[in-house]
Computed example of a mutant assay.
Amino acid sequence: MLPYGRQTIEDDDIAAVAQALKADFLTTGPTVDAFERAFAETVGARHAVACANGTAALHLAMLALAVKPGEVVIAPSITFLATANCARYVGADVVFADVDPDTGLMTPDTLAEALGRVGGRKLRAVLPVHLRGDACDLPGLEALAREAGAVLVEDAPHAVGTTMKFGNTTEIVGDVRHSAMATFSFHPVKTIATGEGGMVTTNDAALAQRLRVLRSHGMVRPEGCEPWWYEMPEPGFNYRLPDILCALGLSQLAKLPRFAARRRALAAAYRDALTPLAPVVRIATQPAWSDPVLHLLVALIDFEAAGRTRREVVDALKARGVGTQVHYIPVHRQPYYRNLYGELDLPGAEAWYARCLSLPLYPGMADDDVAKVAAALKDVLGL
């Protein structure tokens, strides 16, 4: 069975974890600092703060900005639950932005429409999601957010290694040139894996220090106090990432160029293999400015034209050894948010959801696996 995603763990990764297990610190030790420094250097940010997972990264970002109950955070409806939930964790309201139906991304136009639904409430943050690994139009979104008195926080768990070119300037997701912070996840199906794990990057030293305090119960150790003394000016959380997992992260980060090249090669092979299945099947559109390291290979399928339901296609592909997934059910459809905010009309999100199906994509795939997936899809759809 080809799963839609899978970690790539090799002997040197196992050796790195074994070495960490034999070290003096299993957590809150020097390997955490080393992983943070290496990640910051990789993405071109001044600071990187490791934490327990990608959801914790988003929550910490909201806490670091001191987002308050009754304030507003804008998030796209096509994303994982955590993007919206992080605002609710701090009592803020979520205004859901629509997305481009062919990229799944928040755009300046969909953000502008969402801004019109904020009303008289205070807008604190806009959370664009680099869905699949493709980058959003950060300069366009930043300009609108700034005009509205808010900052961007990039939700970037899909986009480790993705580069962008705006004008003549090449940038990398995580360098936070247009945002206050960017958040990442190292879940096993992501581009690099620590099992569970997350990171927040920022160029603001004060934000970085606040993130570090909040990830460890809110404790601070004032200068000049007894060595055992600590104080808690405000409560934080136990969102630390252990040295054991940071050792795996360091080992995986060293492989990022290879992983990125392999994912890009597989994505190019998919483009060639799926072209004959158009117009019923096509790959999600890549924005002109984005050079992604795709976490997800999303096919947009006209199930009605094929005369098959998505469930029929998913089951038939599974029977042929091809695993798939759906990314994502629009978050505004979830019972919690429907009960909270009522029904919303977001046609781009609905159009995306109606057609999306994630196909297998991970570095360990063999060269001929893409052709196998394309042939299975052609057979199942009767094309």
Results as ranks from 00 to 15, higher is better:
Lys318Cys: 00
Lys318His: 12
Gly321Arg: 05
Gly321Val: 04
Gly323Glu: 02
Gly323Val: 01
Thr324Asn: 00
Thr324Gln: 06
Thr324Asp: 03
Val326Cys: 09
Val326Leu: 13
Tyr328Trp: 15
Tyr328Asp: 08
Tyr328Phe: 13
Tyr328Leu: 09
Ile329Ser: 09
His332Ala: 13
Arg333Lys: 10
Arg333Cys: 05
Tyr336Cys: 00
Tyr337Ile: 02
Tyr337Asp: 14
Arg338Lys: 15
Arg338Glu: 13
Arg338Phe: 04
Arg338Trp: 03
Asn339Leu: 13
Leu340Lys: 14
Tyr341His: 06
Tyr341Glu: 00
Tyr341Asn: 07
Glu343Asp: 15
Glu343Thr: 13
Leu346His: 01
Leu346Phe: 03
Leu346Thr: 02
Leu346Gln: 08
Pro347Gly: 08
Gly348Tyr: 05
Ala349His: 08
Ala349Thr: 11
Ala351Lys: 14
Trp352Ala: 05
Tyr353Ile: 01
Cys356Val: 00
Ser358Trp: 01
Leu359His: 07
Leu359Ala: 08
Pro360Ala: 10
Leu361Glu: 04
Leu361Arg: 07
Tyr362Gln: 01
Tyr362Arg: 01
Ala366His: 10
Asp367Thr: 14
Asp367Lys: 10
Asp367Met: 03
Val370Tyr: 10
Val370Trp: 13
Lys372Ala: 15
Lys372Ser: 11
Lys372Trp: 09
Val373Cys: 05
Ala374Ile: 07
Ala375Val: 02
Ala375Leu: 06
Ala376Pro: 05
Leu377Ile: 08
Lys378Thr: 11
